Every structure is written in C-alpha cells, then in structure tokens.
Amino acid sequence: MKTAYLYVRVSTDEQKRKGYSLPEQEDRLLKYCKYNNIEVKGIYREDFSAKNFNRPEWKSLFTTIKYKSPKEEANILFIKWDRFSRNVEYAYEMIGKLRKYKTTAMAIDQPVDFSVPESTVMLAVYLSVPEAENSRRAQNTANGIRRAKLMGRYTNKAPLGFINLTLLDGKKIITPKQPEAEIIKWVFHQLSKNIHKIEEIRKMATDKGLICSRSHFFRLIRNPVYCGLIPVNISAEEQQMVKGMHEALISESQFYDVQRIITTKRQVTAKADTLKATFFLRGFLICPHCNQKLSGSFSKGNTKKYPYYHCHGRCKTRINAILLNECYQNKLQELILSNNAAELFNSILEDQNMKTQKTNYLHERMLAERKLKEEGLTLSQARKLFVARI
C-alpha cells in the first residue's frame, strides 16, 4: 500500500482573491487518497507565503521525511504546484533534496510523471506560471503605490510624528500626531540654529518625550515628509519630490537649511568645537623650557580621555588642561580694576551710548521727514481734485 504526507497551504491574500481554504484542500486530498488506496501518514497545514521554503510546517514535514526509514518510499501530495512553491529556482532545488530521501512531490490537479523525460517540460510550465503571476502582482502593486505618491498621498506606515487615517471615501492619509509632532518641530528649529550637536538635540528631545533610537533619529531629520514632500523613485538613480496632501510640520526652506547644516558644517566643526572649548588657552601659553607655544590634545587612558597642554619640542612638557584652566579662571576672578580704569570704561560706555542714541534720533528724524513728504503729496493731490471739480 502506498503512503503519502498531505500538504495544504494558503496565504491571506490568496484566500481573499481565489477563495482557497485549508479545509477544502484537505478534504479533496483525503478523498483522492481514499479513492487511490493511499495511506495518509500525516497532514501539514500551512498559512504562509510560498516565495521560499522558510515555512514552519514545511520545515516540520521536511524533518519528518529526513528521518524516516531510508528504505521507505513516500509521496508529498498537494492540490496544485503553486501550493508547493511560487519560485522556480527554489522548487527545483527542493525536488532534488526530496529525491535524495526517496520522496516525490505530486500535485493531484497537475500530475507529472517523473519517469517520462518529456514531463519535465510540463513541470517547468506548472512552476513558472505561479512565479510569473507573483511578479506581475508585485509590479502592479508597485505601480499603484507610485501613482498614489505622484498624486501626493503617503502610502507607507506613517513616520514618527504622524498617524495613518482612512477618510470616509476610503482614501488613506497621514495627519500630525501630538505631542511627537511639536517635539519634531522643535528639533528642526534647534538644528537650524546650528548651536548644539545633533546628539545633544536628540537627548534633549528624548527628555521632552520623543521615543526614538539614535539611528532612527538620524533618518528622521533627513526625511522630507516633514516639510510636506514625498520622494518618488523615477528610476534606479533618479528621484522626484512631489508636494504631499498631508500637513507639513516645517517649511521647505527650513528643511533644506537643516540638510545643509547636518551634511557640511556639523560634520566638520563637531570635533573642533570640543577642542576649542577644552583648550581655550592654546596659542597663548609658552613652554617654560623651550619657549615654544603649547598645543593641546587628549590622552587616552584605561577608562576615559584626559586633556593635556603639551609641547611639540623635545622637552616633552605636559600640563593637565583641566587644572591649568581652573587656575586661570581663579586668577581672573582675583583681578580688580583700578579706579582710573573703571572711569575710563565708563567714559567709553557713555560715548558708545551717545553714538547709539544719536543714530536712533537720526533714524527717527528720517522717518518723520518721509512721513511729512508723503502727507504733503496727499494734500497736493486733494487740492488738485478740489479745483478740478469747481
């Protein structure tokens, strides 16, 4: 008596489109086995895509086949070849693996006699049609998504700061979600100032309540969706920006200003700013041994980096930067201006204030003269109109 393992598979989209169901397939296979006097050794039910064989139930079935008796011949029965696979390359590879364990894959609605060489032609047709169908469906889906994007609709999962909504007519849109949207506005505003580092702004945004990883944050600040634009791929190398139907969180000018800052200025100045803040006396200090100007750099320790002012000469002078900076600041606080110097500064400030006041007076005078001239022109036109009516 022949033996067989039954394999039934369905994916969610196939069930919607073609009405496939696991019980229906199972019932047909059982009737086939009963009619042909085939013993059923197991039934494996799968709810998974057939783009590859990385499926839970198939793995379980293949393990059973692998550890069965070497002398035992078995069959795997299914309804059609698209239940087995929708990829020609993987399908032929799996048929070869099953053959090693004396097992044959068979479709009851599309039978193939492997003992006849010409039957491999029909097998190729049965396997290639599902793959072509999958490719066409994927292409149609991609074209539909592209058309929707060209119309200004965002078709993917809403980015952070937005939420997906479906309108009464069935169209899907994204709309700002609070408080994330306000925090993202604040992030772009801070980035446009070019004062803080990106990582500092990310940490401040996290403190405000933005839940976002470091890598996600760097993608977020480069996403044009926040300024109302949707990127559409025209080709593999060309991309077009389309005005979206959704509400923008920031202006386009602010977005592109931020892109210019994060791709140029910050990339160059981040390390330099740290060095300037730590070694602000560099260029003013003189080595006590060789009279050369001291430079500054970090020395790597076991747990952290330590800042030092040092000499490039052979004297190898090294001074702890933190200690020297504190001593310098303490000395500055001990300095007191003399009375003559304080009077001089007061005189300079008074002169500066007088110049500022004089500039303000001249500006106000110019505005008054301009207003008088405009009023005079208005009065002259009124007189002309009055005379013309008489």
Rank of each mutant, 00 (worst) to 15 (best):
L281D: 01
Y226E: 03
D169Y: 06
A248E: 10
L150D: 00
T175V: 06
F162N: 04
S235Y: 07
K276E: 05
Q190W: 05
Q239L: 11
P224H: 10
P176V: 00
I145P: 09
L210P: 02
I262R: 10
H216N: 08
T175F: 09
I174S: 07
T278F: 10
H216I: 11
T175G: 10
R153V: 01
I234R: 15
D273I: 01
T263C: 08
M241E: 12
I221Q: 14
I262L: 14
I183W: 09
N194C: 09
S235A: 07
K172L: 01
I201K: 15
I184T: 09
H189N: 13
F218N: 12
P231M: 07
K177Q: 05
C227K: 11
D257V: 01
Y226T: 06
N143I: 02
T155L: 09
R219S: 10
I163S: 15
I230T: 12
I173M: 11
F255T: 01
C227T: 11
V232I: 08
Q190E: 15
K171E: 11
P231W: 00
K193G: 09
K243F: 03
Q239R: 12
K149S: 07
E252Q: 15
S235T: 12
G228A: 11
I221D: 11
R153E: 05
I250W: 15
D273V: 00
K203P: 01
R153G: 03
A272N: 11
M151N: 15
M245P: 07
I221R: 13
K208T: 01
M151D: 14
E247M: 15
A248G: 11
E180P: 00
A236M: 08
L167Y: 06
P179D: 06
P179T: 03
